[in-house]
Design a protein around this nucleic acid. Structure first.
Length: 891
DNA sequence: CTAGGGTTAG
């Protein structure tokens, strides 16, 4: 009786002890408390119970102490209770010791201990985290063997595992087989698609889930937001935001951070700020998302300011620091970059590979390759990004040899990837080294990198820059996938090859394939429009910049000013200029050039002075523009004054183009001997462009003595512009030295140079009509020829006589007259007269310079037909009105 | 069992 009572009492005490120790164990808030409870368990002999052992193992894992977990587990040898095994496997997985967890799982199988359904989720997790596809398959088979495949927990874990392997087909299959799909099942699939950038699929599954009656939770939302952001699905994103507020889960910090990140992807700074400011609790991720978001929007200065603000009230982590270091690199702010790097070291941050790579890049972008090299050399472990970043740094600073040397070392450490080869390719692109480019192309084919999009884009660019447009187009045609960069590159390739028509065709082609032009595209198209005076396409680009807000970008405005002025619309150039909020030296130069081109020298001078007053410092291009403008308006004194000012006040050493402008300035005003003296006094060796400027003036003014003296200077080795040869030939033709003309023609042929045939074009009712010299094969030839005769007869009565020195063949006088007759601008003008209402102004464009005879001829025409005729030749605009020209015969 | 912020290249 007594012993029985005593037994009950002992049991009761033991029970009390167990329950209080169990409570103490669960509520242990730090490792120290846990150790105390552990000691109590040992003294009371309860440590060896399967229940407490399992609890201890889990609890140690909670405090990331897997060693203690393992030590508790190893007190049982061998452990026979599945609960203990589950605990240790879960503990090890939780602590990131995935292989150890999987090792224990296979030991469990070796000793033929049967896992239960609680074993698998953590085992599957370990496979997923370790990236071990092989064991993952084995575990999956094991699950099927035991018949656990219908368990939701296990199914969900499998979905997650396959998604992490990137095998969304298998993930989906497992998902479909789960009989009772719960919210975690849906979340796992959505998250799987989202994490692998299958954004459409993520959204689609989300809609399916909603139709299945599922209410989203924070997990659902936080997988969905990146999908909305990635797709730039603004409507869906806003809807999800609304839903978040309706469900009241906007207090979830991960959800809010997700919203923040999404708005940055949309480029919606204000909405992002609103989310950030509205957050009651912010964590490091919130701040980092904000700072990185500003960087993504290229607001680097602001992102640095935010960093400073963050430092005052929050502790930054390594990601914050690397984000600002990136901003420093992109701003090329070496001073602040050094400061932040120093701050990082002082604060004791340990750099991982990624962080070190970012620092290498920062220093490289700031031009401090020594610092880059230092960080690189100190790294204990490097990946291909480390090598690529350093190699690219050297290449971008022009040290191609160092880049190649590093490439050779890299091969001893690890295998170069396609990015390494793209870097090497850029050496050949930059130095137009076709041989090297071809070699790399061969390597790329051998390594099967030649199907990669970025690689192909680089190849298109390389061949184009090496002058091999056909090879460039060949790579382009063979590409199966293209992106916006491909199109921008191929358009630039067309410009490089001086095939503007093909360039515009590419633009159409690109639109047909529904690619949205970006800023780079527009900056590629505008110069084409300028070159061939494609007014409609140019205006279209302008409209596009309005629609998408690119107008605010300074380079776009600059290109628009040039485009409008070269298309003959100076008023629009001025309007674009006036609307620009930010103007740089290029903007002002563009306007000065525009005025120069149209012969409005006074406005050019005024604009130049306004630029100085606005505090903009003119560069060497600005001086070319102003001297050019002076030259084309006959402002000789002013032009010479600016030439002196450039050296004296701005310390800019004159380049060949400045000397060419001055020669042009002097010779246009008839001071031919002074121009010749000026050339002789130049410190630089005059090239064909300098002699050409003088020569063309000699020809226009008929001073054949000087022309004869200097014409041989045109033939200089290295001059590949056929224009100068033609010019010299023209001079000899004017002198009647036909043998020399023939000699030059031969020389042009021998050098493989091709003379551009004269071509003029006019746009009437959205169609462009182009005419070549002597063109006889167009529809209205008879009518045009008739009117041409009538007009020429009419002006003969007013005093016009053909200036036969401009006929370039050794033929009889009558025939010469006929040749002048057929000059392409005359055909275009007469065609325009025939096909527009009386009084309509005409705009003609010509690829070469207007000849002196045509210039006179057009003056007469403008008077006879009472029309304003605007002609853009290779040099400038001529506005013919009532028998005079705006160039005042300075052209 | 499911969720958020970082690197090189055209």
């Amino acid at each position: 009786m007594k012993t029985a009572k005593l037994g009950i009492l002992r049991e009761r005490t033991e029970e009390l002890l167990r329950s209080s120790l169990s409570k103490a164990l669960s509520s242990a808030a730090n490792p120290k408390q846990l150790h105390n409870v552990h000691s109590l368990l040992i003294t009371s002999g309860l440590e060896r119970s399967a229940f407490f052992a399992g609890k201890l193992i889990s609890k140690y894992a909670q405090f990331k102490d897997p060693i203690s977990s393992l030590s508790v587990f190893h007190h049982f040898s061998p452990a026979t209770n599945v609960y203990q095994w589950n605990s240790i496997i879960r503990a090890l997985t939780h602590c990131g010791l995935f292989s150890k967890a999987l090792e224990l799982y296979s030991t469990m199988r070796d000793i033929q201990l049967k896992p239960d359904k609680y074993t698998f989720p953590s085992v599957i997790n370990a496979c997923a985290a370790a990236g071990d596809f092989q064991i993952g398959r084995v575990v999956h088979n094991h699950v099927l063997e035991i018949g656990f495949e219908f368990d939701s927990y296990i199914g969900n874990a499998l979905v997650d595992m396959y998604a992490r392997f990137g095998d969304l087909i298998k993930a989906r299959n497992v998902f479909e087989e789960i009989p009772h799909k719960d919210i975690v099942s849906w979340n796992s699939l959505i998250s799987g698609y989202s994490a692998n950038a299958y954004w459409e699929e993520a959204l689609e599954v989300y809609y399916q889930a909603r139709m299945a009656g599922l209410n989203p939770d924070p997990f659902t939302i936080s997988s969905l937001l990146p999908a909305c952001g990635g797709l730039l699905a603004i409507k869906e994103g806003e809807m999800v935001h609304g839903l978040v507020e309706k469900l009241g889960i906007d207090a979830d910090i991960i959800v809010s951070n997700g919203l923040l990140s999404m708005y940055f992807k949309f480029g919606r700074l204000l909405d992002a700020r609103r989310v950030f400011n509205g957050m009651v609790v912010k964590d490091t991720v919130s701040w980092n998302t904000l700072i990185c978001g500003y960087c993504q929007m290229e607001l680097f200065k602001e992102s640095i300011e935010l960093f400073m603000e963050m430092v005052r009230r929050f502790r930054p982590d390594l990601l914050t620091i690397t984000a600002v270091l990136r901003a420093c690199g992109l701003l090329q702010d070496l001073e602040f970059g050094n400061f932040v790097h120093d701050y990082m070291i002082r604060s004791g941050f340990e750099c991982d590979i990624t962080a070190s790579n970012i620092i290498i890049d920062m220093y490289a972008k700031c031009g401090d390759l020594l610092a880059s090299r230092n960080v690189f050399d100190r790294m204990k472990c490097r990946d291909s990004v480390s090598w690529n970043t350093l190699i690219n740094g050297y290449i971008q600073s022009g040290s191609y040899g160092e880049g190649v040397k590093l490439f050779k070392w890299m091969k001893m450490d690890l295998r170069p990837d396609f990015i390494t080869y793209v870097a090497l390719l850029s050496i050949s692109t930059r130095s137009a080294d076709m041989k090297l480019g071809k070699e790399i192309h061969c390597d790329l084919v051998k390594l099967a990198f030649d199907t990669d999009l970025v690689v192909c884009n680089a190849l298109v660019d390389m061949y184009a820059k090496c002058g091999k447009i056909d090879d460039s187009l060949m790579v382009f045609e063979n590409m199966k996938v293209r992106d916006i960069v491909t199109w921008n590159t191929v358009i630039a390739a067309c410009v490089q090859a001086e095939d503007c028509i093909l360039g515009l065709r590419m633009v159409t082609h690109m639109k047909n394939e529904e690619f949205m032009p970006d800023m780079a595209t527009l900056l590629g198209i505008l110069p084409i429009c300028s070159a061939i005076a494609a007014k409609r396409q140019g205006k279209e680009v302008h409209a596009y910049t309005f629609k998408f807000g690119f107008l605010l970008a300074v380079p776009i405005g600059n290109a628009l000013i040039e485009m409008y002025s070269k298309c003959g619309n100076l008023t629009y150039s001025v309007r674009v200029f006036e609307h620009m909020k930010t103007k740089d030296v290029v903007t002002w130069t563009a306007l000065i050039s525009a005025y120069g081109l149209h012969g409005e020298g006074k406005n050019a001078l005024r604009t130049f002075e306004e630029m100085i007053a606005a505090g903009i410092i003119p560069d060497h291009v600005a001086f070319v523009a102003i001297i050019y403008a002076c030259s084309h308006s006959g402002f000789v004194e002013e032009g010479l004054a600016y030439f002196d000012l450039m050296k004296k006040d701005y310390n800019i050493e004159p380049r060949l183009e400045h000397y060419a402008c001055v020669v042009d300035l002097l010779s246009r005003s008839g001071q031919l001997s002074k121009a010749e003296e000026f050339i002789k006094s130049m410190p630089l060796k005059p090239d064909a462009s300098i002699w050409g400027a003088l020569l063309s003036a000699c020809r226009a003014s008929g001073d054949l003595k000087i022309a004869e003296r200097i014409s041989q200077n045109i033939f200089q080795p290295g001059s590949h512009d056929p224009g100068y040869y033609v010019l010299a030939a023209n001079v000899y033709a004017a002198l009647g030295r036909w043998d020399d003309v023939r000699m030059i023609r031969k020389s042009i042929k021998a050098r493989g140079l091709k003379k551009d045939p004269g071509c003029s074009w006019i746009e009437i009712r959205k169609r462009v009509y182009a005419f070549r010299t002597e063109d006889k094969f167009f529809k209205q030839y008879e009518k045009v020829n008739n009117l041409l005769g009538i007009l020429t007869n009419l002006m003969a009565k007013e005093g016009y006589a053909a200036d036969l020195q401009y006929a370039l063949h050794d033929v009889e006088e009558d025939e010469k007259r006929g040749l002048l007759y057929g000059h392409s601008e005359r055909l275009a003008i007469v065609f325009g007269l025939l096909n527009t209402e009386p009084g309509t102004p005409l705009q003609i464009f010509k690829n070469l310079r207007v000849c002196g005879d045509c210039h006179t001829w057009t003056k007469y025409v403008s008077k006879i037909v009472k029309r304003e005729i605007l002609v853009r030749d290779a040099n400038r605009f001529h506005k013919f009105q009532d028998g005079t020209c705006s160039c005042g015969d300075h052209w």
